[in-house]
Design a binder for these strands. Structure first.
Lengths: 224, 224
DNA sequence: TCTGATATTATCAAATTGTTAACCACATGC
DNA sequence: GCATGTGGTTAACAATTTGATAATATCAGA
């Protein structure tokens, strides 16, 4: 996962949208916004955020609808989703959580508390990877930007490193080309598809270990 | 992680302790209780619960102290910790979350909501498995894009995989040719009917398992 | 048996990826 | 300022795989 976490906020009140956006940006997150449910789904598909904050009551599709729709797609299974609602109704809260949300927050909420909650959510998500991956003979140190295979260090360029680190973060999982582009290159930059191939090739070359498998028409995966 | 989740609740009010314990037990969790901070730490070490619910204000060590002490030990790094407090003070909540807690709940809280929250926390922790269908000897791993039959992996091309995954998603259900076209090929693309047959054939060939039944004039269905 | 539907096979077109070389931007050291 | 090296991207072409279709064979039910 790239360093900067992406957060999508969906709310029909521009003021709230702006306040939350500002505060989360201050905290170092990359923030996207949506004014309604449909826009939220569109933005989610486009930017593949790590966390989505959904207002429940929005014109058109409401937050719970959006959550349901997203959760049906495998690519959003891991995505953190929290509701942010003025409704402190017990039934709604339960329904929200059972839809597959990770938390249910009620308005009004102070920016500081919101940030604490967001940080807490990410803290746990991050822990799954850790800064040092060890996979058989292969060690990947994200902090020191170092690869070590069978005791000897291997120098990878930054993109190569990030690409390998991403794939290795979930061995076996197939990363779609889209996912890779979003995580390694970010949503801003647009690069061609061949670019990924070339980097994959370089990694395969430097690690003569045959650990990256092509899944044609889908993406790549890491496997020892 | 074992099947039955263990939960430790620490609160100095016996009534609350009992209500929560009862409700969580009803939900199928194994519940331990502690009446104060020291007891909480002792029970945590003894039973290694998956989730600890801590009251903030307790005689002796308060909840935040307990959280701090536990989080220092590697063995409790993965343990879910949530605070449950009558203090809705913003500063305390932030401090609690920054201590390394996963959530901060405020009393009074309805048992149903509490259970929803607890379930939500466990849901994410469990997700390590990813999404895979298991049908007898046949495993379909959508994340790893892999078919495994009786222990050996089978490689399917994308359309083949998607087609099989679709049929297998509802064993027994007959999928009309139209449905299949819509789900696998999308509404945009127009392909002939024979195309489906050919893909079905390839799947049948690769899995020598006879699991796809033709329903003449209607469609196909998956059955073991 | 006849007929409509599906299975099979071979074939071709299209899509996807691998590979190499070249290019540009940028930093470094002379 | 100027050569040099590195990293990242792209273009161009080769190699490969996949997907779709047509043609033919086969099957099941009326």
């Amino acid at each position: 996962m790239s360093n900067v976490k992406k957060i999508l906020i969906a709310d029909d009140e521009p003021d709230i949208l702006e306040i939350i956006q500002f505060n989360l940006q201050q905290e170092g997150y990359e923030v996207f916004t949506a004014k309604n449910g449909d826009e939220a789904i569109e933005m989610a598909k486009k930017h593949l955020p790590n966390l989505i904050i959904l207002d429940i009551m929005m014109p058109g599709k409401n937050g719970i609808d959006v959550c349901n729709i997203l959760r049906m797609q495998p690519i959003f299974k891991e995505t953190l989703i929290v509701f942010l609602s003025a409704l402190s109704d017990e039934g709604t809260e339960i329904r929200g959580l059972e839809t597959g949300a990770d938390d249910y927050l009620t308005k009004p909420i102070s920016p500081k508390v919101l940030i604490s909650k967001v940080n807490a959510l990410f803290r746990r998500l991050n822990n799954e990877g850790g800064d040092l991956l060890q996979l058989g003979d292969l060690k990947i140190d994200r902090e020191k930007y170092l690869i070590n295979y069978q005791g000897s260090d291997i120098v990878l360029a930054r993109k190569e490193f990030e690409l390998l680190a991403l794939l290795a973060s979930k061995p076996g999982k197939v990363f779609l080309r889209n996912e890779i582009l979003n995580q390694v290159w970010g949503t801003e930059v647009i690069v061609g598809d061949r670019t990924i191939d070339v980097h994959i090739r370089k990694i395969r070359q430097k690690l003569d270990l045959d650990c990256i498998t092509t899944v044609k028409g889908v993406g790549y995966k890491f496997e020892l």
